[in-house]
Design a binder for these strands. Structure first.
Lengths: 220, 220, 220, 220
DNA sequence: AATGAATGAGCTTTCATTCAT
DNA sequence: TATGAATGAAAGCTCATTCAT
């Protein structure tokens, strides 16, 4: 049948395949509404096999969260921290680019999963805070801070609050992707998410108000 | 033959009591993870009584959504539409005020509920689109449009996109209230939501960038 | 509202109305599949009222059986016993007539009810044996016996067995009335029951076989 | 990957075991009064296993009926149709023999089950008509017809009606077997069913009436 | 007497988990 | 290792029965 090597390789891949399947289904339907067998089937194995790799459905959930959260954040973080150009540029280009890779990956579902399940599994909260919220806020915070330091951004900026102004819509769009997104009746109402984030960043930078027009003017 | 008054009064109140209990629990734990009996108990009745008023747990969910969504949106809408002052003022005061009443009420949980359950109950999507998304976007859209028309907001504003910049953080904070909010380990990281929304509005108005400083003046 | 007299009259009628409703529904759907409330509704009263007259659903069943069985058998019995004509005549006319009144009345359902429920309520058996089987067999047995005694029927008749030949089809048609009878797809196959019983009696009397035709005679 | 043999064998046998158990209990207690778990237990499995093979209790009932009805009728039919001897002989020997095998098998319970449940599950009627009533009546009808054609039976015979005279007592005894039969208090009253059917056939053939006795003869 | 809201034991059904193969 | 038949605890739902009015 299969050579020992193939078997070995499949065996090694199993846990990840199961985690992927679990992430997909937990995000789509929620933890409680997902059957263990569905996860197994989506991963191409049988019910019993799932339990060879994870002792229970709940442990599977935790593994999914641990695994997915740890993986993905760090990667873009480096680039943002390393970035040497203007903060404006980082906000308009680098950050949306990074976000797009998150948005496009299945990991975007983690936001929905966390929001959905923290109340039932409070351990998730701590993990999420440590792995996502803190590092995420820190890196954006530093970016904004640098903008202030470099004179690009207004000196009186409330950096903490601004971080949320930057970040919350990005998360919200990830949530939509896995909730209302797939519902045809809503799709038509919402703009394309990539475009939306770029617009949002631009707007954040320049503000809604009609720009002050120096020299000759009667600005409000 | 004549129904006693006290009984009648209790009977009349039951559906609402059950809906309230269901909203609370469905939001907290999700639909699938909430047991019918828990809802009944929280409403102060027994399992069987729940089924006197709603034919199934699923119908209860739909009733919760129908009931809660329909109720709450309209109220602030009127005030926003009626508002005659400057758009800036509406954005800085009226809108945050309105949002605060939503945020404080249990109805704020609807956002979590919808996000969590649309994939499992697609009928929700249509209802949410019709009752919340469309009217909500329309009223904010008109507000921004008026700002543009009155020369308060920049003429080249992408109104559609700006609506999302305004709205998404407000929704996101409602989600937090019912997900990470109650987790002590996170609370410390996040600013007070009311303050956050007001900061967000201010930032959206003025932008991050250091105001262009023309030669002669002392701009704001 | 209602005068005391009317009330009194209704009150007196209640038990019978409930028994009638119960008979109808127990026969149609079986005891276990009939809900107490259905009986009450059909009798035009509310659930609670049923329990004012009968202490439990099971007691209601027993009352139905006691009441219905006792009532109906005796009546025709008298006439058969009193009959002074030929046994042949009794078999061809009197018996079918009697049976027709049973078949037409709701009491015909008792046969189905007994057959359906004896296994679950063995007390029924004794009652049925005493009230229906024994007197019924006795009266038909006497009829046949008289036929033999009077030289109408063959002398070597096994009366016990013949009673069953006479009676079983009559009961069977009562069963059909309440089971397959109402199913349109079967109706077409079955002959009209009254006609059938009369044919059956005639056949029983004369037999299937071509009468032996000895040379000289004009038999029958 | 390969299913072990012993397991496979058990799995193959399960549905039949469950159907057998269900037939027994549904006949004895009726569908509504039989608990799913009782069926499982009688079949030697647990509650859950039942639902591995049948999606619901109601589907189990339908399967029982489909399965049992289809199976059993045909078998004797062939022999009756193939029979080349006299119709009289067929009626006295072949038919009672066939009936006895039905009577002795658990399938005899089907008559009770059909009578008991058609009103609640009208689909049963059509199936019963097609699988039992029609073929059964046809084969007996042909038998009688042949008797007429061969000069054994009276030429003016109403064949349709006669079929019922033949058949109804046979069915009725099957019903008794599963209703009053097991009640000791009745048993004493009723003759042995096999004997009864043979007596019935003999009586049907020859009739109750004293044979006409012409003057000179050796009439049988 | 009559009502019908309320109850909770009990039944149907599901599904996480086990384990013989 | 992998399977999937089997289990039984637990969830959804029903309905006989009670009881305040």
């Amino acid at each position: 049948m299969t050579t020992p090597l193939q078997r070995q390789r499949r065996k090694d891949a199993r846990p990840q395949e199961l985690l992927d399947a679990a992430l997909t289904l937990f995000v789509e339907k929620g933890f409680a509404a997902t059957k263990a067998e569905e996860v197994a089937t989506l991963a191409g194995v049988s019910k019993g096999t799932l339990y060879l790799y994870f002792p229970s459905k709940e442990e599977l959930l935790k593994a999914v969260i641990r695994h997915t959260l740890s993986a993905d954040i760090a990667q873009g973080r480096e680039r943002l921290l390393a970035h040497q150009g203007s903060a404006t540029e980082a906000l308009l280009d680098l950050l949306p680019e990074w976000w797009e890779t998150v948005y496009d990956s299945p990991n975007s579902g983690m936001f929905k999963l966390v929001i959905t399940e923290v109340r039932n599994f409070p351990e998730i909260a701590e993990f999420y805070a440590r792995e996502v919220v803190e590092p995420g806020m820190e890196v954006i915070g530093q970016l904004l801070q640098r903008g202030v330091a470099q004179g690009e951004f207004r000196a009186d900026l409330d950096v903490m609050a601004a971080v949320h102004s930057v970040v919350l819509p990005m998360i919200m769009l990830c949530l939509h992707k896995h909730s209302l997104g797939p519902c045809s009746c809503i799709v038509s109402i919402l703009p394309e998410p990539r475009q939306l984030i770029r617009s949002h960043m631009a707007l954040l930078l320049q503000g809604l108000q009609t720009p002050a027009v120096p020299k000759t003017r009667k600005t409000r």
